[in-house]
């Protein structure tokens, strides 16, 4: 069994299939990365450095945008990756009155 899985050749993250401890060297089908953080199974590890503002790619598609620089081997999750979709909180436009009940 692999310790982590890269789903598409375009991806810049891999999915851990077991607990990955810092210092662990991964060989992901020829792509090498040393784990920097503790990565629980199911969580993502950067397999290359990803600059703030760059798209994070899994399944060969964008799953959001890096909100800080992410080093290769780092844990990628809600602290450094944000969705670009459904963000009414960032939306510039009229807000429905139901959003702010006055009772």
């Amino acid at each position: 069994m692999n310790s982590a899985l890269v789903i598409s050749g375009r991806d810049n993250v891999a999915t851990a299939l077991e607990m990955l401890e810092p210092g662990r060297a991964l060989d992901l089908g020829g792509r090498h990365v040393v784990v920097r953080d503790r990565i629980p199974p199911g969580h993502k590890v950067a397999i290359e450095s990803i600059a703030s503002g760059q798209a994070v790619l899994k399944y060969g598609s964008a799953i959001g945008t890096a909100v800080s620089d992410i080093a290769a081997g780092a844990h990628v999750h809600v602290h450094n990756l944000a969705s670009s979709r459904g963000r009414g909180d960032l939306h510039q436009g009229p807000v429905h009155p139901l959003a702010e009940p006055d009772v």
Partner: peptide, 23 residues
């Protein structure tokens, strides 16, 4: 609604399981 769907999508359980974004 001026709201951020991140409170429900992904759900808290999804996030614990390693899913970060709705995409």
């Amino acid at each position: 609604l001026g709201l951020d769907i991140r409170g429900t999508q992904p759900s808290p359980g999804n996030i614990r399981g390693g899913l970060t974004t709705i995409e």
